[in-house]
Nucleic acid binder design. Structure first.
Lengths: 344, 344
DNA sequence: GTGAAAGCGCTAACAC
DNA sequence: GTGTTAGCGCTTTCAC
């Protein structure tokens, strides 16, 4: 790619046009103290009429603050992440930041590689949107990398439960799962199955814990509930539904641990001619934009993904506290048409 | 954000460890000629064992090639764009590139601002994924900006029809629209309405042109078909459906010009108790991932969004040709359950 | 084939 | 309050 040099305005051009030194121009534009407001104002005006935009590379190289943040997601094509990204890009644009997005494909190796890349790019902050892992040792290298980054002044925020010791936006997965399970139990379902992603994901683990609590609250044994563990994706949902239908034909409700899986479950049931919710109820988690437009519309747990993305970036932009900050966000049960009483 | 300096490896450290000069180290790592293969190999080995990663800012400042590309989308939360982004991020990761994504919110002003930002960040290439505008004058400032960028060695590729004179990935919107319209006409529909986005978008204009052709092919007058022009979004689809129902109650089919609108149309019809496809058929365009999982599953036109994203980046990475390159991608009719014969 | 040295455009000490 | 100057880490002539 580009090798030649753009013939763009340099700070010096602005300084000359404003009749000040390059240092004064720099101070004026970056809002540093030590310049009279009159001069600063004039410099800013000259800069904007000239259409001057600072070279971020030079700025970063010289040790100035970085106006770039990295966003790490499992898969941007997944609506859960694209809605988070959308919220985050919104505040990014408002703050005049550039956002680098990278995929990990749910692979800790690739996550590590992407983190290294972001750090090498000297981003000012990193937001990790993908779920954490239950086993801390799997993220140990990432943690080490991030600690070095933070010691050098970098900021980090995560969405979801991680073992990274950083600021976090924490959706209430446990309570949300408890609510949706209680909803099904209240409707009278007793033979339920769970379509889950890998238990290694803290998101999955926490949602399972919530289900368990709901069962315990009702005096039921969650250990007897079949939990099918596949990919945390639509395809995984399909596979899980097939397996549940085959191995547990008496099931009256399928709890999918995210909407993507729920959509796969609905699709598999439709293909098999199973009526939802008459024969089998289905629930999801996240409330992605399309959840309400499916037919039957999906009963699920709403997480404000856009806001979560915003919050995470806001946290990452704040000055670091002495201890990791936590922003809890509520999960709200949304009852729609995919859940109903079990067939009698 | 970050102000302090990371205590990272510098090229000099690698050079010392390998017992060569910093210049030789640089040449070895960037694959420039003028170094014996033996030495180059040794340097690369040392660098990788040390875990050296070049500072992109220093590299870019010194005039080296930039390993960053910018992706401009209307809205990353829209599945059409997130699927394109997903494909593009895939090849980006493979090529070791970083990708900056920015939102325009379908606003030419903001698009311009984002382009300026990318250019100021010295990205090596820019991919514009959002639809072009029919009126070239609206994008004239962007065009000027991009031309300067290209003269400085920057690369640009677009998805869809633009007036930018750059490499382009061109989905066959006309033929796709023609196919879906013919499908409805063949089913016997004669009273159809169109839910469209702004006619200023070339995507909308081209799809309308395709519809018109299909009608002409069938000896019918497209001018008599109501075209409701709202937002090119789900909400727009809902609004369009309401209006069509109110003003043209006899309509037996609604052609939505993208899937997002079609989902909104389906939702509005369901809310009104209109059965699809028994009373009204609905079709979309794009075939976003969820289209097949809606109920009724959506008859639509498939565009390989992921591939389009990949292709666009591949084009942008190629050396510039003497004339703009074009990659045509086919649009394929996908008949599902949302379309059927009109009520008799 | 290899090394020395001059910047790239900016910020941050440090002088005045 | 303002200007001077020394780098930031790298690529790239230009000598050798």
């Amino acid at each position: 790619m580009s090798t030649r040099r753009a013939a763009t305005l340099r700070l010096q051009d602005v300084a000359e046009a404003a009749g000040v030194s390059i240092a004064t121009a720099s101070r004026s534009l970056s809002g540093s103290p030590g310049v009279s407001e009159t001069v600063a104002e004039r410099v800013r005006e000259v800069a904007s009429t000239l259409g001057y935009v600072a070279n971020v590379h030079a700025r970063s190289l010289a040790g100035g603050p970085t106006r770039t943040v990295g966003l790490v997601v499992h898969e941007i094509g997944d609506p859960y992440f694209s809605e988070i990204a959308s919220g985050l890009l919104g505040v990014g644009a408002r703050e005049g930041l550039t956002v680098q997005i990278c995929h990990t494909g749910r692979d800790p190796e690739r996550e590590l590689a992407q983190l290294r890349m972001l750090i090498a790019n000297r981003v000012g902050a990193i937001v990790i949107a993908g779920s954490g892992l239950v086993d801390p040792s799997l993220q140990a290298p990432a943690k080490a990398e991030l600690q070095t980054f933070r010691r050098a002044g970098g900021r980090v925020a995560v969405i979801g439960r991680h073992h990274l010791g950083v600021d976090a936006v924490l959706p209430d997965n446990v309570e949300g799962a408890r609510a949706v399970a209680r909803h099904l139990l209240d409707l009278g379902h007793r033979r339920v199955a769970v379509a889950a992603g890998s238990r290694q994901l803290t998101t999955v683990a926490d949602r399972l814990a919530g289900l368990q609590q709901a069962f315990a609250d009702a005096g039921l044994d969650f250990a007897a509930v079949p939990v099918v563990e596949t990919d945390f994706t639509r395809a995984g949902g399909k596979a899980a539904a097939e397996q549940i239908l085959a191995e547990h034909p008496g099931v009256t409700a399928v709890l999918a641990l995210n909407d993507d899986m729920a959509i796969g479950v609905l699709s598999a049931l439709r293909a098999r001619g199973v009526s939802v919710p008459r024969e089998v109820s289905v629930t999801g988690f996240d409330d992605v934009a399309v959840a309400g437009d499916l037919a039957p519309s999906l009963t699920t747990v709403r997480l404000p993904m856009g806001e979560m993305g915003e919050q995470a970036l806001v946290l990452a932009l704040k000055k670091p506290g002495t201890r990791p900050r936590r922003r809890h966000v509520d999960a709200e049960l949304v009852v729609r048409d995919s859940s109903g009483p079990p067939p009698s």
